[in-house]
Amino acid sequence: MSTTDKIGRRAVRQELRSTRSGTTLIVAIIALLVLAYLITEVILNMLGQPPLLATPGALALGATQIGSLGQPLLYAIGGVLVLIGLVLMVRAILPGIRGLHHTPDAANPTIIDDTVVAAALAKVIRDSANLREEQVSVSVGRRRATAHVHPTTGVPVDREAVQSEAQKVADSYALTPPLRVSVDIDKKGMVG
């Protein structure tokens, strides 16, 4: 495999997953604020100025005597910290699927947003069943696309035909992972 192919594969793998840069930024900003506060307290103490909240010595002493807060408060603080820690660990481990598909058959690595696929499938269904824009809505997940059709009153829609047509088009996109299309026809019709 050439370097170009390797870089392409890696790019696709990275692009399909969230980089977690948002979470990272929030964590970094909070850490920076805490750090800035501690530095300020130490410098104020060095200059012999009154502290903002507590001197570094008082903060250290407070940490050793945290037990005097009492059981309920200790459980609450501990619980909140454990919860935040678990959320961060889970966000670090979960892939963070981004609502994208890719087409491995293309000459260059190509990634397609699910919104594009949904809009295209909706258009196919509209055209094949002769419907207006607001009568068809399509949602695209990782492995399946679901279309909701509101037929015009008195004009039945052939579900099988619409579904097989939409499936045929979805297959022609050659997406990974492949999409299975299902079509729901509303029992109540719309006044056209």
Binding site: Q14, R17, T19, R20, S21, T23, T24, V27, A31, I66, G67, G70, Q71, P72, L73, L74, Y75, I77, G78, G79, V80, L81, V82, L83, I84, G85, L86, V87, L88, M89, V90, R91, A92, I93
Partner: peptide
């Protein structure tokens, strides 16, 4: 973007926070 590094740091910070939280709960 540093995807792998971000996840590593997030995991590390999460682990430290969870351990501190567990320790505080244990004191109670």
């Amino acid at each position: 973007k540093h995807a792998a590094l971000n996840r590593f740091f997030l995991f590390l910070i999460g682990l430290v926070l969870a351990l501190i939280g567990a320790a505080i709960g244990f004191l109670g």
